[in-house]
């Protein structure tokens, strides 16, 4: 599948998701269970994207102190929790990774 086709389909699906219930309102009620389930989509999907980046090193499980991405990621998680600020979290995490990579070898 060419990348342009992927972008087009991805765009159509995204628009469809945003447009669907605005268009269908009055004809279709969102069931309570689905509404609850949708609530857990962001934490589930984002965790599935975050965890392998922190815990896996070239596909291998790496939980040692020599895994700078795991340490920098944990620092970023703490920063995000306490600061609740997007920019501060990204900056702190990047600086942490730079420092940890320069002292590691």
């Amino acid at each position: 599948m060419s990348l342009w086709l992927i972008l087009l389909l991805g765009g159509l699906i995204t628009f469809g998701l945003r447009f669907s219930l605005i268009y269908l309102f009055g004809r279709f009620e969102v069931p309570g269970t689905m509404r609850r389930a949708l609530h857990y989509v962001p934490p589930a999907v984002l965790a599935a994207l975050i965890f392998p980046e922190l815990f896996l090193n070239n596909g291998e499980f790496s939980i040692t102190a020599l895994n700078p991405r795991l340490l920098a990621g944990l620092i970023a998680i703490l920063t995000a929790w306490y600061s609740r600020n997007t920019l501060v979290t990204i900056t702190t995490g990047m600086i942490a990774l730079f420092l940890l990579q320069s002292i590691a070898f």
């Binding site: 962001p42 984002l46 975050i50 979290t89």
Partner: peptide, 10 residues
């Protein structure tokens, strides 16, 4: 991953 952490952790 940092962007995703910043979005979801709070």
């Amino acid at each position: 991953p940092l962007t995703f952490i910043a979005m979801i952790v709070p």
